[in-house]
Design a protein around this nucleic acid. Structure first.
Length: 274
DNA sequence: GTGCTTGTTGGCCA
DNA sequence: GTGGCCAACAAGCA
């Protein structure tokens, strides 16, 4: 599920509940796939006794900093989520990591187990964190960079190219469809076939979707929405992508769906021409 | 039972 | 070496 804004939503859940709290107990299962071989004893040594200091989200990744030198990396994969439970919570089948403070249990759950936890110890940020591409909303995400990337991936469908994290960090299936729909670009178009004006529009709409998704999903003014996605306006493609007989919010025509770039893709034939 | 699912990776091939 | 495609990973849901 989680793309850019959902990832930020989950980061804030842990951060706002437990910032400054000390980890007293660490619970993890050695066999849990999201640990990727990371030993529970290693996690325990690195985190127990330390306070949750700060955290950041970038692309689809989160890093939580504990104490002076521990970095806990979280990738939520397809079905991961972060929850906050009470201090007496008993972890269930899909809860792969539980960090107990005196007041809370911070839970990482992931039924499909495509998610990944990483641990790094040291003063400086880990290499995998520093390697994440510049955010969509940073000045380094330029039209020129997008244009160059599209030239390099000229023969791939633009939908597939938008999913490449090395240039579009945080964009996933629904954000890609949303940006293409707003930019009026058909998802099957070869990336190299886009005119400069279309590249500019797509660049602009990627940023628009990122900015507004962060606002409505992850909140603003210090308030975290109670639920994911409830704030997304009906005028977005988002709510209509999966519904049977779904219609384009702008033109009213029936939406179309097909597998493009290996992913189910939704578009409005009235706005997006092959 | 069937056929999906908001992600990533590695192997194969041109 | 680079780019593009696909299967695999796994569990839940309709």
């Amino acid at each position: 599920m989680p793309e850019l804004a959902e990832v930020e939503f989950f980061r804030r859940r842990w951060q706002e509940a437990a910032a400054g709290e000390r980890v007293l107990r660490v619970l993890a299962h050695a066999r849990a796939r999201p640990l990727r071989g990371l030993a529970p004893s290693t996690l325990r040594r690195a985190l127990a006794g330390k306070r949750l200091r700060s955290s950041q989200a970038a692309a689809k990744q989160i890093v939580f900093r504990f104490g002076a030198d521990a970095w806990l990396g979280v990738h939520l994969g397809m079905s991961g989520e972060l929850r906050v439970e009470g201090p007496d919570y008993a972890p269930g089948r899909h809860d792969h990591l539980a960090l107990f403070t005196g007041r809370h249990a911070l839970i990482f759950a992931d039924p499909r187990m495509f998610g990944r936890l990483q641990l790094h110890t040291g003063r400086a940020a880990p290499a995998w964190w520093k390697a994440i591409a510049p955010p969509l909303l940073s000045p380094r995400f330029t039209i020129a960079a997008v244009a160059a990337f599209l030239r390099r991936r000229a023969r791939a469908p633009i939908k597939a190219v938008l999913l490449m994290q090395e240039r579009f960090p945080g964009i996933g299936n629904w954000m890609a469809d949303e940006a293409l729909w707003r930019a009026a670009v058909h998802p099957q178009r070869p990336a190299g076939s886009l005119a400069p004006a279309e590249i500019r529009a797509l660049w602009r709409e990627c940023r628009w979707v990122a900015r507004h998704a962060l606002r409505v999903i992850a909140g603003r003014g210090g308030r975290l929405p109670a639920d994911l996605n409830v704030g997304i306006p009906d005028s977005w493609l988002f709510h209509h992508r999966w519904e049977a007989g779904g219609r384009c919010p702008r033109t009213g025509v029936l939406l179309r769906r097909a597998e493009i770039g290996g992913r189910t893709t939704c578009w409005s034939p009235a706005r997006q021409k092959p």
